[in-house]
Structures are given as structure tokens and as C-alpha cells.
Write a protein that binds this DNA or RNA. Structure first.
Lengths: 238, 238
DNA sequence: GATGTCATTATGTCTAGACATAATAATTGC
DNA sequence: GCAATTATTATGTCTAGACATAATGACATC
């Protein structure tokens, strides 16, 4: 009813956020429709739509045609993790980046890799990325030579496979998994830790349409953690 | 120049994506401005804006006023991880959810927790969540009684602190870290594994404006992995 | 040469109105 | 009563035009 006459869709978002947070609109509550809100805020419906859509994308609101907009009942915490190039990741910590190629052979990948990468010939590249001389992450990668034949002639001593692929092999979608693994003998010796030590491992596979491009296992040195913030938005604590 | 006359902003997004992917617009390339693209696609500028803005939010395009829009040079892989309520997480795996409260005391939190949660009195809640009888995750939580005094009277035997807070304690923002830790003696006995075993650990702290609400450490049973897809969009493989 | 102003440019956002679409509610026919 | 049809409703999207804003480049000034 009150005309707030705020300016911009962000101000509307803030006000909606405030009401959710203040439990004026508790979880599950159906909020007024866009036309009513537009009138209340003294703006066009498109502006309200912009604000509500953004909140829905963040998982805070559930929107369904005809049914209306309601405050999310199971506010799924949506954490966005930015994964950059390893060199960049190390340099952002203010450390000197160092890279060492360990091996690079054409081989037939083991069964678990072959399951995702396909049966064709593949390039097996292993490398160690270091920060200020200390081992940072061990990269164990398989590149499909069927999808990316150019990789055969690439020289991974100067540029990491990580970055070479960035520049030469596009992909359409991928698949990431985070897990904790016990360090193998190889992991341990490379990362300068004990066998069996808990390592943070990122496993990634990328596809170009239907063809798998590369599968990589990144084993980080002990102490590594991925850190991210959730929301300047609101939900409920859980 | 060619009029494609596609329908909808998603079709425009697809076409832009195709050009990026086909290296017609390589990384770093400045793409035509919105007005020109709108003319090419035979639509309003707002529609082009919608498509490009979505791609920029995904990290694929860099947009700056006046400078124009260019294909991202360092395509940061942006993985969004959805973290739901533990009960839901287990039930989605088709398992029977079981919850057991281990302890619930008012105490002064240890230094590392106190650093984030503040010096006031806090409730220490520990619990074990299981799926089909097998231990799934060990929850070790501190709740600030200054921020959430109601927690003192709550009964966490029937409902987990995880879910109680969802319903009673709103938050504005938070902080998540994923790491790999060696199982402590307590972790090991509860999760039915060996001491020193690699565990996937999620550490989360949430705030309500300036006041910390709760800090929790979730130690998952061995084998746990967080899994997510990246992009139906395009980038480069890395 | 260094600095400050102004015009230009591309994106950012807003408006008012329109049609599309999906899901629900009401109504009709059997 | 039950099923099929129709109306209603709220969101989804698009349009054409407008002004705002930030960054750049050109020009003028010191």
C-alpha cells in the first residue's frame, strides 16, 4: 500500500529481501504478484520482474506461472565456486608460480578413465605446480587425441596442459567432483607429505558436445581448502 | 548482416555461444555492440541485452560500459554447488534418514570458534546423521546464544540443529570452506572408520548482519564427494 | 608535457504496453 | 459424480523508445 518510491530494481530486491528476512514473508509464504508490487513500489512490472527473477535465480524464491511467487521453503544454499587456472590461483596468493612437467606419453587410459574419455588413444600428462618452491598441486591428466589431435604435437614443458587446453580446446560442458582422498605413494612423494595423508582432490571431465576432451585429477597439497561466501542475500541458517 | 530471425533471447544466447565456441569470436575478441546485434537478429536491444547479460553472469563475457563486450580471456570455471539440508541430501539418495543427538551443552567455545562466533555463551551441539543405518556425516556445531537465545530451549533430539535453525534463525550471509582432514579419534569412531582416514569436511559460518549465528563443521564419512556440472555454456577446457 | 573539461559511446536500466505460456479454477457435458 | 473443456491468472518474454552512467578519447588550457 505504501509507496516507497525507491529507485532501481536493486532497491526493490533489497526491500523484498528485508521482508523475507524480517519474517514478514516467512518461508512458504506467497508474496504479492508483480502487478501489485509494481504499484506499491511505483514502478513498471518489468522492474519488479527483474528483482524477483534475480532472487529466484539465487534460490531464494520459488516462482511458478499462475501459482505465483513464494519464499523458498527449503532454501538450498547455493555456493558458487570459482575455479581459475592454477597459475593464476597461485599468483593470486602472492606466490611465485613454478611448473614442472613430469611425464607426457601416448597411452591407453585405464578403465575408469576410459569409461568417460572413450576408448581411443589418449595423451597422459602429469605435472606438478608449485608456489614459492613448495608443491601446490599434482595434475594427472588424460587428453583424448580423437577429440584434440593437436595435443600430440604440443609441448607441455613450457606451458601446462591446463593452460594449453584453455587456448586450444573448447568445451561445451563439464563435470566436477570434490573429494578427500588418501595420498598415494606418488602423491605423497610429489607433494612432500606422508602416504595416506588426506588430500583435497578435484576431478574434472570436460566435453565438447558429445566428445570427451579431457579428464583430470588435481591432488592438492595438505592444507588446501576451497573457500567461498554465500549470499549477500538471505535465507535461514542451517 | 544476415537476419537469422531466431525466437527468444535463449536463441540469441545459443548463437553467441556458438560463435564463441567456433572461435569466430575468440577469447579477448570484442563482439559487436548491442544495437548492431539487435539489428542482425531482428529483435529489440533489450533482448540482446538479456542474452549477453546472462552470459556475462556466467563469466563467459566481460562487459564494460563504453569499452563494449568481449569474450572472457580467463574463463573462470564457475561451479555452483547446491547444499541442501542433510536429511534431504540423504533421502535424495533413496536412503532412510536417521538422526542421533550426541550432546548438547552450554559452553564457552574454543578459541578458533570464538574468533568467528564472538565471546558470548554458546550452545555446543554434536550429532550424527545416518543413511540406511550407515553413518553419513558428523555435525559439530556451535550456536551463539547471544544472537539466537531461543536455541537454549530447543529440543534437538527430535529435530536436528541443522533444520531447527532453518526454521528459526535467519541469516544474511555466510562463509563456506571445503577441505580434506584426517579423521580424529572422535570422527573415526562415529563415522566407523580408522583414525587418520581422509574425510571431506565442510566448515560453515553464518551471520545475521553483524552477529554470527552459528559455526558448524560437517565431517562426512569416507567416500563422500560433492558433484556438480559446469555450464551448458561454453568456455575452454582447462 | 601534464591536466582538466567536454563530447562520444556502449552498456545499464526503466517504462508502458503487448502477447505467450503454463497452471489452476470454473464450467459444462455426459 | 467424473471427465473434458474453457476461463482466469501470474509469470515469461518481447518491443520501442528513453534517460542514466561510466569509460574513453579529443580538445583545450595551464
Amino acid at each position: 500500500m505504501t509507496k516507497h518510491h525507491v529507485k532501481g530494481w536493486q532497491a526493490i530486491q533489497d526491500e523484498v529481501l528485508r521482508r523475507i528476512h524480517a519474517r514478514e514473508w516467512p518461508p512458504g509464504h506467497v508474496i504479492p504478484n508483480e502487478v501489485d508490487l509494481a504499484q506499491e513500489f511505483g514502478c513498471a512490472r518489468a522492474t519488479v520482474n527483474r528483482a524477483l527473477r534475480a532472487l529466484a535465480e539465487e534460490g531464494l524464491l520459488d516462482r511458478r506461472r499462475k501459482a505465483g511467487t513464494r519464499v523458498a521453503l527449503h532454501p538450498v544454499t547455493r555456493a558458487t565456486v570459482d575455479i581459475s587456472v592454477i597459475r593464476q590461483e597461485i599468483e593470486e596468493r602472492g606466490q611465485h608460480y613454478d611448473y614442472r612437467l613430469l611425464a607426457c606419453d601416448t597411452a591407453s587410459p585405464p578403465a575408469p578413465v576410459r569409461a568417460t574419455l572413450g576408448a581411443g588413444p589418449a595423451l597422459h600428462v602429469t605435472a606438478l605446480h608449485s608456489g614459492d618452491g613448495a608443491p601446490y598441486v599434482f595434475e594427472d591428466r588424460w587428453i583424448s587425441l580423437k577429440t584434440t589431435p593437436d595435443a600430440r604435437g604440443a609441448d607441455f614443458t613450457g606451458i601446462s596442459a591446463n593452460e594449453w587446453l584453455l587456448a586450444h580446446a573448447p568445451y561445451t560442458h563439464g563435470d566436477i567432483a570434490f573429494s578427500a582422498e588418501a595420498a598415494s605413494a606418488q602423491d605423497a612423494s610429489l607433494l612432500n607429505t606422508a602416504e595416506g595423508a588426506p588430500l583435497f582432490v578435484v576431478s574434472r571431465t570436460t566435453w565438447d558436445h558429445d566428445c570427451a576432451v579431457t579428464a583430470v585429477r588435481l591432488a592438492y597439497a595438505p592444507g588446501y581448502r576451497i573457500h567461498t561466501r554465500i549470499g549477500a542475500q538471505s535465507d535461514s541458517a542451517g
